[in-house]
Amino acid sequence: MGDIHRYLREYYMPHIWCPGCGHGIILGAVLRAIDIAGLDQNNVAVISGIGCASRATGYVDFCTLHTTHGRALPFATGLKMVRPDMKIVVLTGDGDTAAIGGNHLIHAARRNIDITTVVFNNSVYGMTSGQYSPMTPTSRFATTAPYGNLERPFDLCALASAAGATYVARSTAYHVRQLTTYIGRGLAHKGFSFIEAVSQCPTYYGRRNRLGAAPAMLEWQKRNSISIEQAKDMEPAEREDKIVTGEFVNQTVPEYTEVYAQLIGRLGRQGESR
């Protein structure tokens, strides 16, 4: 793979992420996927919400929009509607997407609007120093789950699939090559593409749950990842705590802004009289 520094705002580096944070690895995968896809740097908009992952937009040299908490997808929807020629990438975290922005996720997926969403899932609210998120596994610890998390986490890929996303995949920071491939396929896909990238937060999640430093957390990702095929043959109890990686959905469905452009074309042919 080639050098990706030309996509970075080097004058604004180093970034704010903690030592060993998986988000930098995932952002690298995004940039390599963009590089491999040969996208025009001027025609890519990268949009994020609020949280550690969402700080990514400051560091990358595209049209970048760092929005409000959970709202990256509706901002992206408005931009895509009026600039259907642009490639829109949303970078977001698990709190941003699965909690405060959950409604926007399912509706962007339902519309099948051509946006590639990459969720940096580190199972925790890092920016506010380690509260549990909708992606924190049951019984794991967080600053707001001092007795262990009582809630169940989402299966985000299942959620996106059920809501109608037309490309859905999951990988991890450790599986960075596979992750890059899936992001690349998401970028090439016409429609709403959703890639969950499992990340590591050594500072808050790792430390509180005694998962070791960053290399050990990457090892955990490696050890606990199973393919969709492997998962099929496992009992639900066995699958618990496993990361199922692979492509869950890849289908062709009319894309929203194309459908809208067809409407404009149809009305234009009818003339403007009412």
Partner: peptide, 20 residues
């Protein structure tokens, strides 16, 4: 690929490159 800080760059690459 695994450096989270964009701090490592290869100055030479394999001729064929690594498959993505």
């Amino acid at each position: 690929l695994l450096c989270p800080d964009f701090a490592i760059t290869l100055t030479r690459r394999r001729a064929k490159g690594l498959s993505a």
